[in-house]
């Protein structure tokens, strides 16, 4: 009678990595943040404009109210996402400021990189957390609002006329989400203090706006709108939604600024994330 070994057996096959290791980091980050009551309150607050816009669609299409602000067109969706920049700003700080800085402070990178995780996995994993939470108040409700508008519409005219809007909603949301995510991740990777990263993010955002205010005043021209982070995002939003850009500065400059922020941010984060940091 053959006797089988029922004990522990070593894996004799080939060690292979699967391409979704970053998801472990993303999932863990999402779970950690979901446990924070204040963060959940912030997320719930960010859903209020969505409810209001949903009601507006209902009144405009089902009830037939015809006030100018109830016009459901491309600008309606663009305005919604632009408005959500307010919440995206706070969510980025809450969710993103400590993402890397806390790991740096706790010397946790050594632990991460003692596992079969590459630097790219780590960065994508952390970015995933931000993309997830920043998409929740922008991309997700934007698409749902479009779906509601289609479903509530009396005929298919709206869909025929605005079939491209979901693509625009996705593109504009991604511009905002990726820009915010990379800026806060970059700042988080440059310090061991989440507070420092958070305040710096606010400083970048507000100071660039103030810089625009002063420069446009001194130069008597709004063509310098591209110095403001928020203006660039809005400028791209207008273009993506086929609306006349709100600033006279060239759109290509905004494209370049946003690409530099995203690309440069990714490069900085990737280089800052090291298993061992020699500080002395």
């Amino acid at each position: 009678m053959p006797i089988h070994d029922l004990g522990y057996r070593h894996w004799k096959g080939e060690w292979t990595s699967h391409p979704y290791r970053w998801w472990v980091i993303t999932r863990q980050g999402i779970q950690l943040l979901m446990k924070r009551r204040r963060f959940l309150v912030l997320m719930i607050l960010s859903a209020i404009p969505f409810v209001v816009r949903g009601a507006m669609i209902y009144f405009a299409t089902v009830v037939g109210a015809s006030a100018p602000f109830l016009k459901i067109n491309a600008r309606f969706f663009e305005d919604f996402i632009s408005q959500q920049m307010f919440f995206a700003f706070f969510i980025a700080i809450y969710a993103g400021a400590g993402l890397i800085s806390n790991d740096l402070r706790a010397n946790a990178l050594q632990i991460y990189f003692s596992k079969p995780i590459t630097r790219r996995d780590y960065v994508i994993g952390k970015l995933g957390v931000l993309v997830w939470f920043l998409s929740l108040p922008t991309l997700v409700p934007g698409l749902i609002l479009f779906l509601l508008a289609v479903l509530f519409a009396p005929d298919t005219a709206f869909l025929r006329e605005h079939y491209w809007v979901p693509v625009s909603v996705t593109a504009y949301s991604l511009v905002m989400v990726l820009t915010f995510a990379l800026v806060i991740l970059t700042l988080s990777s440059l310090t061991r203090s989440s507070r420092f990263a958070g305040i710096n993010f606010a400083a970048v955002f507000f100071f660039s706006q103030i810089l625009y205010g002063i420069l446009s005043g001194i130069l008597r021209s709004r063509r310098v709108a591209w110095v403001s982070l928020g203006n660039n995002i809005e400028q791209l939003g207008d273009t993506i939604f086929r609306i006349d850009p709100r600033y006279p500065s060239p759109v290509w400059i905004s494209v370049v600024v946003v690409l530099v922020i995203i690309g440069g941010g990714a490069w900085v984060v990737h280089n800052r994330v090291q298993a061992v940091e020699v500080v002395r």
Binding site: I93, A97, S194, R195, G198, I199, A202, F206
Partner: peptide, 12 residues
């Protein structure tokens, strides 16, 4: 414990 967010909401 986390004064930043409250500080930012207050300040700006």
């Amino acid at each position: 414990k986390h004064p930043i967010l409250v500080g930012l909401i207050y300040a700006f």
